[in-house]
Nucleic acid binder design. Structure first.
Length: 568
RNA sequence: GCGCCCAUAGCUCAGCCGGAUAGAGCAACGGAUUUCUAAUCCGUCGGUCGCAGGUUCGAGUCCUGCUGGGCGCGCCA
């Protein structure tokens, strides 16, 4: 389905062509409802280029514009803006078509890509904590949206399952492990032995050396150390899976760092052979002498002791994703601190001749109420499991207050949907680069731009249809008269314009803001326009608008990885 | 020292390619409930868009410099 924006945009292009002026500007949603529904500044741009009077040029464009099927006669305003106001008939016709469209108007991309999305990436032998929320939730939402738009998406969990920390973990395992504790809380025990070993190593060089030896043995394939490592990985994966289960996260593949181990020597050899890498101070580095801000920031791909590091792994990961997985696009969703690293990795890929579209999608941090990185009272990272459990518990308490007569089992399910939805929405409704302050009260409020507010709009609609009793059959024709009806219908039509926009700059918050405005428009409609008590044709029209709103909310929240309850 | 990111209402935040009188929510205040979930809606109050220049018909948005905060910068990942 074409959107009003694209229809008007094409009309504008035709008008410019027939008026004999070059293409310029575009049709965008009006910045203010007072100006109508859509606007273009084409006349302003052309007038500037050609040194002409913008308002006169705008009039000339309008004389060639034919939008009567969709909009009232366009008007000129301000310095030379052309404003479009959709007709009620056109909006009603569009809404009627939306009812027949499973995609709710959202077009498939005409440039489908094969995209590897790397997100989440927790570390083995460490607990998942708040810091993992943003990457996980953001990456998942982008994956859902890209998939819906028709891209081929491969979701990859680049697990941190290799590295120097395993020297300490294995030393701790052999010398400090408490088997009972490992049974009860495996990750906590792994953290304990790691931390204790680290402390011992700080005080005692002999321990440090022993850890180094354990690491070397692991890397050279010692069976005992490999077995311990494998067990750590398995225990951690179990923990990750539990979190993903609660969060509703799915991965297509999980290629941890260790997966690339046997490819690392070739990476270094290849880069040396091609002259991209060179020896420097005992290590092997790639320099970027021709790029001013990277000139003094080489990328180390092999340490002077012969070991490889995460840059080596990430270069091997690029190879794998392009050559083995056949990706033409790679999105890596991690925090902003890794900006320099991925800039280097992408630059190396470019120098090696890769033409794929590499994007490092960064995000800010989650802060506590004190505006510092969110920590527990004792200064540790807040474990993700604890946080998710609290979200559900808080949601359950609210449901209990508002709707005590629901059966307990249903209450639990609703609390899960609301609690997890609130955590995800709090994150996704905000621009990804800004740090945000975590607040239970705000995210679980039913007022404002929150998941519960949106979910409640959906629930109210479901309630209408329960009361309706009979099966709803959409009318062939809608009749929009009330301002609240028109406003809601226009919002519904904008879904198709909003979803693709998210991927321009990886901003799911654009979709979240849209859904908030839709829910707002619905609630206003709900107050102003009785549905079931109305006479035909208003009743059928209002049922249809309600149905569409429910579908857009469900679909839109679904694209953010958030579910909707039937009751709450 | 160099680089990246951020700075918008009392608080939390929108504002993508430069567009019209900078918008929401919360808080505060005032209204609306014989009702399909008031879990909501309507209204009022609230601004030197960090500071100073520049580019132009037009700057929260682009450029330069500064201030403040966060992060990063060869053998951790």
């Amino acid at each position: 389905m074409e959107t009003f924006q694209s229809i008007l945009g094409e009309s504008l292009s035709r008008a410019l062509a027939t008026a004999g002026v070059p293409a310029a500007g575009e049709v965008v949603p009006a910045t203010d409802a007072r100006f109508g529904d859509y606007q273009t500044n084409a006349a302003l741009i052309l007038a500037k280029q050609r040194g002409e009077n913008p308002r006169a040029l705008a009039q000339e464009i309008i004389d060639h514009l034919d939008v009567a099927e969709y909009a009232e006669q366009p008007t000129i305003a301000g310095a030379g803006f052309i404003n479009f106001k959709l007709t009620a008939v056109a909006i009603a016709r569009y809404a009627a078509r939306l009812l027949q469209d499973d995609r709710l108007g959202v077009a498939l991309t005409n440039n489908p890509r094969r995209i590897v999305i790397d997100f989440g990436s927790p570390n083995v032998a460490k607990p998942m904590h708040v810091g993992h929320i943003r990457s996980t939730v953001l990456g998942d939402a982008l994956a859902r949206i890209a998939t819906f738009l028709g891209h081929e998406v491969i979701r990859d969990n680049h697990i941190g399952d290799w590295g120097t920390q395993f020297g300490m973990v294995i030393y701790g395992w052999k010398n400090l492990l408490d088997r009972d504790a490992l049974e009860r809380e495996p990750i906590a025990e792994l953290v304990r032995i790691y931390k204790t070993t680290n402390e011992l190593g700080t005080a005692d060089p002999a321990v440090r050396e022993a850890c180094r030896q354990e690491l070397v043995r692991l890397q050279t394939g010692d069976p005992e150390n490999l077995r311990i490592w494998n067990e750590c990985v398995a225990l951690s994966m179990k923990e990750f899976e539990a979190a993903y289960q609660v969060l509703g996260i799915h991965y297509d593949i999980q290629r941890g760092e260790s997966f690339y181990n046997d490819r690392l020597p070739d990476v270094v050899r290849r880069l040396l052979d091609s002259g991209l890498a060179e020896r420097s101070e005992g290590a092997i580095c790639v320099f970027f002498r021709d790029i001013p801000d990277l000139a003094e920031r080489p990328c180390l791909i092999q340490k002077s002791d012969g070991g490889f590091n995460y840059a080596t792994t990430d270069i091997a990961t690029v190879d794998y994703r392009i050559k083995d997985l056949g990706a033409d696009t790679v999105w890596i969703v991690t925090g902003a601190p890794q900006l320099l690293h991925f800039r280097q990795i992408f630059e190396i890929a470019r120098r090696e001749g890769y033409t794929a579209d590499f994007r490092h999608i960064t995000h800010g941090s989650i802060l506590g109420e004190d505006r510092k990185l969110m920590k527990t009272r004792s200064g540790d990272n807040v474990p993700l499991g604890d946080l998710l459990r609290e979200a559900v518990a808080r949601a359950e308490k609210i449901v209990d207050e508002k709707n005590p007569e629901l059966p307990p089992e249903e209450k639990n399910a609703i609390a899960l949907t609301i609690g997890i939805g609130a955590v995800k929405y709090a994150d996704l409704s905000q621009y990804r680069m800004t740090d945000y302050i975590f607040s239970w009260d705000r995210m679980l409020s039913f007022q404002g731009n929150t998941a519960p507010y949106l979910q409640n709009a959906y629930v109210r609609i479901r309630s209408i249809f329960r009361k309706l009793g009979a099966e709803f059959t959409a009318p062939n024709e809608l009749v929009l008269t009330e301002p609240a009806e028109l406003n809601l219908a226009k919002r519904l039509a904008q879904f198709a314009e909003t979803v693709p926009q998210v991927l321009n700059d990886f901003r799911p918050n654009l979709l979240a803001n849209y859904l908030f405005e839709l829910a707002n428009a619905f609630h206003a409609f709900y107050e102003a326009c009785p549905v079931l008590k109305a006479d035909e044709p208003a009743r059928g029209t209002r049922l249809a608008l309600s149905e569409l709103t429910a579908r857009v909310l469900q679909r839109g929240l679904g694209l953010l990885g958030i579910r909707v309850p039937e009751k709450m």
